[in-house]
């Protein structure tokens, strides 16, 4: 456990340190470059903002109206058979399809159940370990005009499924 925490906490500072040291040795205008990149960061956040407002409204309404609980009430007996936490279901469904939607759903889950709760951790680990699969496949195949994608979607979705299941299991093991 201590090892896990140590690795997790050293990763980010170490990556920053290595990159800055490396750039320093290669004599790059580090701060100027930093500023250019940081400005792009602002643009990313601004572009997703309208989407987030719209989706937060929809997800908030689904939850507060009680309809989400109603739906979960009906499917939870099935999911419970597999020991799958129902509160994660909405995220698992939207994650492969839309990046900003899954950010909105994950944030809502973390906020509702607590960011450091077990469900909150699961949502975070799922977000970090999976990709917007369908979107990625579309970018790569449409870039070269290929129509027949063969098994790619199935292999990727299977990988997502395993990624999500592993996230749930590991969060249960680590406790939260």
């Amino acid at each position: 456990m201590q090892f896990v925490n140590f690795v997790s906490s050293i990763a980010m500072p170490l990556v920053i340190l290595i990159i800055v040291m490396y750039a320093f040795m290669e004599k790059i205008k580090i701060f100027d470059t930093f500023l250019i990149g940081a400005k792009e960061g602002i643009n990313i956040v601004i572009t997703i903002f309208p989407t987030l407002v719209g989706l937060f409204l929809a997800i908030g309404a689904l939850r507060s109206s009680g309809i989400l609980d109603c739906i979960i009430h009906f499917i939870s007996p099935i999911l419970n058979q597999f020991n799958f936490p129902t509160d994660i279901m909405p995220l698992a469904l939207i994650r492969p399809i839309s990046g900003s939607s899954s950010i909105a759903v994950a944030t809502n889950i973390m906020k509702t159940f607590g960011v450091d709760s077990q469900i909150g951790l699961m949502a975070a680990v799922i977000m970090g370990s999976t990709e917007t699969t369908v979107y990625t496949i579309t970018v790569y195949t449409s870039s070269i005009g290929v129509k027949k994608t063969r098994f790619v979607l199935w292999a990727s979705l299977l990988a997502d499924f395993v990624g999500i299941t592993t996230s749930i299991i590991i969060c249960k093991m680590l406790g939260g």
């Binding site: 920053i16 990159i19 750039a23 470059t33 250019i36 990149g37 940081a38 602002i42």
Partner: peptide, 14 residues
């Protein structure tokens, strides 16, 4: 996001 994009911009210049 600004911090990380800045750091990653540095990395991509090296």
């Amino acid at each position: 996001m600004c911090l990380w994009n800045g750091i990653m911009k540095i990395a991509s210049e090296t």
